[in-house]
């Protein structure tokens, strides 16, 4: 994909001390940014598989520090923070993730005689797509429905972790936290000065300067 920077120079964290953030928000964001980068719940082997899966579900550009996605999954499992419902065909999330990661690893060994995290991206994608479509090797999945695990956990958990991170907000031009200041200009094509400017073609330098002023 083209990694065009649609909101060059925009950093939502620059608003940290503005009226768009309150203490509760600063506290929540500090916790978000301070996520452990090492597993506490998963084993090192499971962690390696998870890191590889995260990189395929949300590939990230090399031009900026990556969002440590696997850290959020491990944190969720370590805290056993649940979503409020569970498809009756799936085990509880801790067991589901452990089973699922073991299954991807087993399938990688079965088909390619290699660890999942050592496969190239194309082969990893192929195994992920098999799980998504329910075409996985059932013997590797120990009775768990691969497609359900893929949609309920692989997709939901990893994608939610990415779009909860300020780095992704910079990327999509989301204004981010907004209280107590809120917004004033509600109509389309109107921008409050504390919202990012989108770059058109050829005006990147001007837009970057403008976005550096977004506070």
């Amino acid at each position: 994909m083209t990694d065009r920077d649609r909101y060059p120079g925009y950093d939502v964290l620059a608003k940290r001390h503005s009226l768009s953030w309150n203490d509760a928000t600063r506290k929540a964001m500090d916790a978000r940014l301070g996520v452990p980068r090492e597993p506490r719940f998963l084993s090192q082997a499971e962690w390696a598989t998870l890191v590889a899966i995260c990189e395929r579900i949300v590939p990230q550009p090399t031009s900026r520090p990556p969002v440590p996605l696997a850290g959020y999954i491990d944190q969720k499992l370590n805290d056993d923070a649940r979503s409020g419902f569970r498809n009756a065909a799936l085990p509880p999330q801790r067991e589901a993730w452990k089973k699922g990661l073991a299954a991807f690893e087993a399938e990688a060994r079965l088909r390619h005689d290699m660890s999942f995290h050592c496969l190239d991206g194309e082969r990893q994608d192929e195994l992920l797509r098999c799980a998504e479509a329910g075409r996985s090797d059932a013997s590797a999945w120990d009775g768990m429905e691969a497609s359900l695990f893929f949609s309920e956990h692989v997709m939901n958990d990893i994608i939610a972790a990415y779009y909860a991170h300020p780095t992704s907000w910079n990327e999509i031009g989301f204004g981010g936290p907004a209280g107590p200041r809120g917004y004033v200009r509600m109509r389309r094509n109107r921008r409050d000065p504390w919202e990012p400017v989108e770059a058109g073609s050829g005006d990147e330098a001007r837009v970057r300067r403008e976005n550096m002023r977004v506070r």
Binding site: S20, A24, T25, A28, M29, R32, G176, G179
Partner: peptide, 11 residues
């Protein structure tokens, strides 16, 4: 709400 609510979906 004034002290406990963040502008943040996840938390």
């Amino acid at each position: 709400p004034l002290e406990d609510f963040a502008s943040d979906e996840t938390s």
